[in-house]
Design a protein around this nucleic acid. Structure first.
Lengths: 219, 219
DNA sequence: ACCTGAACACCGTTCAAGT
DNA sequence: ACCTGAACACCGTTCAAGT
């Protein structure tokens, strides 16, 4: 009674079709993304994928670039700092919406076209603010680093709800207060570790400093 | 002529000995760290490790905690912002000195004791600066995120010298200037992407904003 | 209690073969 | 040109056996 596998039609496997399947698999956790799992979802044999991507690494790079191309820049206003804030928030939301992608993007800092596009859009805001080329690159790097680091805090929780990082407040409260007085005292605040409010605070301080530096330079 | 494997003496395998070997393996690249490779280095059989660590995940968690315990806080001065700057720099140097550990720490936000210790030390500085508990946690989160994100930029290069991220400047210069004018114009600045100078700029703006916020609150 | 050996269910990928 | 099948050299881990 075994169902005889039908042979896949000739042109039915394209990079797009493969990436679509790969993303569906990755959404169940990036570690679940294997060439064999993607092939199985397409009812193809693992080796069929290798006609379209030379290695798994290249398939993953293409997949991540595809995700990053979904970034939509907020409309510009006349306040470059507010534009930068909106930009950073939109970028962080993109990462949060693809929690499975955060770790591999972090590990694989692929200089793909989608990353270049995001950089170009950010530089436009920073240069408009009066920053030098060198400072604009440094400022964009800082914003990216903040977002990737922050996304790792939240991605870990989103990907593993109920995991060890879930009731961090309870764990910290149970520590010896003699050794870690401030940690125990701030246990409640740690419960919202990685929250939107905390992100707004951190990003806000960075933008405050950036605005001050830019106005110093232009006076 | 095959050398007969001698049986390992009874107490010769301890968690410390295993972690020592694991770190030596991981230094050749974290993806090279397998239970089998660690066992081979100890001239033991893979299953021997399971008497000391229940899973690979637990072994890795212990290994990362061990690395983070090497953090040495700089001595305190009477300027909390300068103390925070020195703290952030020391933390980033620790990550840079263990480039192989950056990705797994990022993926595995283990609330291990070493992380708690680092947090306690940072909070001491922030509370001394007059920040509320909630703001201190947010500020420390921001500094951590910045450092982990930044470390990912440099770790990728350090772990794969001569890799695709090596001559990023040349790659960016080759892009169509109509589509990416600012990227092409800043190609030289991107060549030093992730540099100490750029980090100092990004951290500096964050600390400027933090100082301003703290003095506002205490007036 | 701790170390071993064989086995199981996975990987990515090579290589030769089909159509 | 693209899809297939079998095989190779790896994984983490279970389970039963040694000492």
């Amino acid at each position: 009674m075994a169902v005889k596998r039908t042979r896949r039609p000739r042109g039915s496997l394209t990079p797009d079709v493969i990436l679509e399947a790969a993303e569906a698999v990755a959404e169940q956790g990036f570690e679940a993304l294997s060439m064999r799992a993607v092939a199985a979802r397409l009812e193809a044999v693992p080796m069929a994928l290798y006609n379209h991507f030379a290695t798994k690494e290249q398939l993953v790079a293409a997949l991540l670039d595809r995700v990053l191309f979904r970034f939509e820049p907020p409309p510009a206003t006349d306040d470059w700092i507010e534009d930068l804030r909106a930009f950073a928030n939109a970028h962080r939301r993109l990462l949060a919406a693809h929690a499975w992608a955060v770790a591999p993007i972090f590990t694989n800092p692929s200089p793909g076209l989608a990353s270049v596009r995001i950089g170009e859009l950010a530089l436009a805001i920073l240069v408009r603010g009066g920053l030098s080329n060198a400072d604009a690159v440094a400022a964009f790097s800082g914003m990216l680093a903040l977002n990737y680091g922050w996304a790792s805090f939240t991605a870990a929780r989103d990907l593993d709800p109920g995991g060890p990082s879930h009731d961090v407040a309870a764990m910290l409260r149970a520590l010896p207060a003699e050794a870690f007085p401030l940690t125990v005292a701030t246990a409640d605040a740690w419960g919202t570790y990685g929250s939107d409010r905390d992100y707004a605070f951190a990003l806000g301080r960075f933008l405050d400093g950036l605005r001050a530096a830019a106005s110093d330079a232009t006076i």
